[in-house]
């Protein structure tokens, strides 16, 4: 005998934000650059962001993150604060001070309780780890929406 299973189709399962994943903001495959060194967090971010319709690229450290941001021109950069070399707050400040990246939104996703520091460094949003996939997707959608409104 197998025990009854939960429904698996994510489109019909209410998520934690009260909306279904299928109702997410239209993403048109927006590119997200994730600056993160933890392989487990990276795996989960890739899965949840791709499932929500985003394209995801990675950088392992702050310096590489800025280099890739220049080249890829992502819509959003998600960065941890604790990174080898250049830290996530410096990544945030550098992006904010660079006119070529003025449309790039920055989300700080960190193990540190550092929302104030992140916002002071110019981040558009802050989330604390561990990774809550519904809040992550919701926040990314919100940043994209704000970004679109600002551009238009």
């Amino acid at each position: 005998m197998k025990a009854p299973r939960a429904r698996r189709d994510s489109a019909s399962r209410p998520d934690r934000g009260g909306t279904s994943l299928a109702q997410s903001f239209v993403t048109d495959n927006a590119l997200i650059l994730v600056v993160e060194r933890d392989p487990h967090v990276k795996k989960l971010e890739r899965f949840f962001l791709e499932q929500a319709g985003f394209a995801v690229e990675f950088a392992d450290g702050g310096v590489q993150g800025l280099e890739r941001a220049h080249v890829l021109k992502p819509r959003i950069v998600i960065t941890e604060i604790l990174l080898p070399g250049l830290d996530g707050l410096s990544v945030c400040r550098t992006i904010r001070s660079d006119p070529a990246m003025k449309h790039v939104r920055v989300l700080v996703l960190s193990i540190l309780s550092a929302e104030r520091r992140a916002l002071d460094a110019g981040a558009d949003a802050f989330l604390k780890k561990p990774l809550d996939d519904a809040r992550l997707v919701e926040t990314v959608n919100e940043l994209l929406r704000k970004g679109s409104e600002a551009r238009s």
Binding site: D38, H40, L44, K129, L131, D132, D133
Partner: peptide, 12 residues
């Protein structure tokens, strides 16, 4: 290490 890392990374 893989299981522990994964479960620590996720909100559970």
């Amino acid at each position: 290490d893989a299981i522990g890392g994964l479960l620590s990374a996720y909100d559970t």
